[in-house]
């Protein structure tokens, strides 16, 4: 069997998800692997999406908004993502915070799904408690995982393929709107988009299997980069890129790097490498 390759792309997670698989397998086998990958991504999309009232996340948000103090049982997917989210919130003293959704709803970047939801005076990450029984809330919050779940979905696709691949050597690239995982990253380079000129790239070597980039690219909309302290929607001319072992981590760490590029301690603590790119200064490691 000769080396064969398949590329597929689907709109999921609010972006285009691109899966490329290369192995000594025939078309049909490669397509089957891609179906597995997209299934894993769709599962995360369905569970952790803010936009669908039927998602598990929406159920959790309604629970929190109802003022119930009991914990709500949650899936392994939501547990994994919330665990990292809260760790990052604690490490960054709240600079990473998945509870800034009310602000995003107010500015129209997220839909107003829960019509009786409280949008002002809601709690923050410190009011979210991950326990053995699930998530409990000491104040009503609205959670949006837009800054972390896309990366997690990519990790899940990779994990799913790794679990099924048996002894076949598979080269795998997954790109969810800039959240990138490359199995053979040592031999790959990547083009990081210039934030003010998205058709141009800074080419650099991959430094880890996962890379995520955040910026305000398509500026006709309000920035979704909300500073949890001030509530301000930050518009910046730079992009930040973070290399890490996992996409979820890379994805989340870009938010910290974007909001405060002057302090890379938390990024280093989580073994990420962060770069800032802009037209004025080029590429800088943080």
């Amino acid at each position: 069997m000769r080396r064969n390759r398949i590329n597929r792309c689907k709109p999921l997670l609010g972006t285009y998800v691109d899966v490329s698989i290369e192995a000594d397998l025939d078309d049909e086998q490669l397509l089957d692997i891609s179906i597995d990958a997209f299934e894993a991504i769709s599962r995360v999309h369905d569970k952790l999406g803010f936009h669908s009232p039927e998602s598990e996340l929406s159920e959790v948000n309604r629970w929190s908004q109802s003022g119930t103090k009991e914990p709500i049982p949650i899936s392994e997917d939501l547990r994994t993502v919330m665990e990292l989210a809260l760790q990052l919130s604690a490490a960054s003293e709240g600079l990473f915070d998945v509870t800034i959704a009310p602000r995003l709803v107010q500015q129209g970047s997220l839909p107003h799904l829960h019509h009786d939801a409280i949008l002002s005076g809601t709690g923050n990450w410190q009011d979210v408690h991950l326990t053995e029984d699930g998530l409990a809330f000491s104040a009503p919050v609205l959670i949006d995982l837009g800054g972390i779940a896309k990366g997690y979905a990519v990790d899940q696709a990779i994990e799913r393929i790794a679990a099924n691949k048996m002894h076949v050597d598979i080269k795998l690239n997954v790109n969810a709107g800039g959240d990138l995982y490359l199995s053979n990253w040592q031999e790959e380079s990547v083009g990081v988009r210039y934030p003010d000129e998205p058709n141009k790239h800074y080419e650099m070597p991959m430094l880890a299997p996962a890379l995520a980039t955040s910026a305000c690219y398509f500026s006709e909309q309000d920035s979704v980069m909300i500073h949890p302290g001030s509530g301000e929607a930050l518009v910046r001319g730079y992009s930040v890129s973070v290399f890490a072992e996992q996409c979820m981590l890379a994805d989340a760490l870009t938010k910290l790097a974007f909001l405060n590029p002057r302090d890379s301690r938390v990024i280093r603590q989580f073994k990420g490498r962060a770069f800032l790119l802009d037209s004025q200064n080029g590429l800088l490691e943080l």
Binding site: N175, G177, E188, S189, G191, R193, P198, H201, T213, Y217
Partner: peptide
């Protein structure tokens, strides 16, 4: 560089 030469791109949300 223009996209044509680059396979892996990071940083796009359409």
């Amino acid at each position: 560089k223009l996209d044509k030469q680059i396979k892996n791109i990071s940083g796009a949300t359409l």
